[in-house]
């Protein structure tokens, strides 16, 4: 299927390889992604801090880049996909862009949600833990890839119902998945929360990291880069041997 692809500002700023991998994964699944030209950010940082006008100004840039198009817009971030599909209609309410925002919202999908439901009308069926496979922490079958801990980001889990699709996409690609204890609890990133209440944010990350370590697995993934950078930054400070990769990186790895 022909799709528009929006990497998100964070990917573009800090991990451009995630965008490359996501598009590679889409192509491998038979889709034709076209990277969005002229987009910057969905406006979420200002929106969540309470600055609507500023959020609108930035989101308008990306909304225009989306253009008058019928293709699905695939986003390599659960929280940006939530912002666009759930909050844009309200953010642009009463503005000349309202209709465009509603249309964009309707065709925006998080990467794994798109990949596991593309071409069908099946909606993702809910929360964490549904598709985890059982077995030892290291490998599920001889020579297969090591098990991956799926970190459920809050937006993906609660607003998109993408907890299951990340797992399903990984399983389809041959990665056994695990959930850590307290998988549905927030990791403490929360945008500006992570720098406004840094000590609380880090304490939340610590609990999350301890639960990862307890699984015996080393690879952590998520559909949200923001959570991963926060967790990775803390894990490195603590000297933990965990690896953090966006789900697109795992799905789009060159074989």
């Amino acid at each position: 299927m022909r799709v528009q692809f929006f990497a998100s500002c964070l990917v573009e700023l800090l991990r451009p390889d995630v965008a490359t991998a996501a598009q590679r994964a889409l192509r491998a699944a038979g889709h034709e992604p076209e990277a969005l030209v002229g987009a910057t950010c969905c406006g979420q940082p200002a929106y969540n801090a309470g600055y609507r006008a500023e959020a609108q100004r930035v989101a308008r840039r990306t909304l225009r880049a989306l253009g008058d198009d019928d293709r699905p817009c695939v986003v390599a971030s659960g929280s940006c996909a939530t912002m666009m599909s759930h909050h844009w209609p309200e953010l642009f309410e009463g503005t000349p862009e309202e209709i465009a925002a509603r249309r964009a919202a309707g065709r925006t999908e998080e990467l794994t949600a798109f990949m596991t439901t593309a071409g069908s009308d099946t909606a993702p069926d809910g929360g964490a833990g549904h598709d985890d496979q059982t077995g030892g922490p290291e490998t599920s079958r001889a020579g297969g890839p090591a098990a991956v801990i799926v970190h459920d980001s809050c937006h993906a889990l609660r607003e998109l119902g993408a907890g299951a699709t990340v797992r399903r996409a990984l399983a389809d690609a041959g990665h056994p998945t695990r959930s850590a204890e307290g998988s549905e609890r927030c990791c403490g990133f929360g945008g500006s929360f992570s720098v406004k209440l840094p000590a609380v944010s880090v304490a939340m990350a610590d609990e999350k990291l301890d639960s990862f370590v307890a699984t015996g697995c080393e690879q952590v993934t998520s559909c949200d880069l923001s959570c991963l950078l926060h967790l990775q930054g803390r894990a490195r400070r603590r000297g933990l041997g965990l690896r953090f990769d966006h789900v697109a990186t795992l799905l789009g790895r060159e074989t």
């Binding site: 500002c9 573009e12 700023l13 800090l14 451009p16 002229g38 987009a39 910057t40 950010c41 940082p45 200002a46 801090a49 600055y51 006008a53 500023e54 959020a55 100004r57 930035v58 308008r60 840039r61």
Partner: peptide
């Protein structure tokens, strides 16, 4: 701060410059 940010990030060329600066 957010006003400045929104002015910058609503312009693709400033955003691109910031991407390059960050990298």
């Amino acid at each position: 701060g957010f006003w400045l940010w929104s002015q910058a990030w609503s312009r693709r060329w400033i955003f691109r410059a910031m991407v390059l600066a960050a990298r």
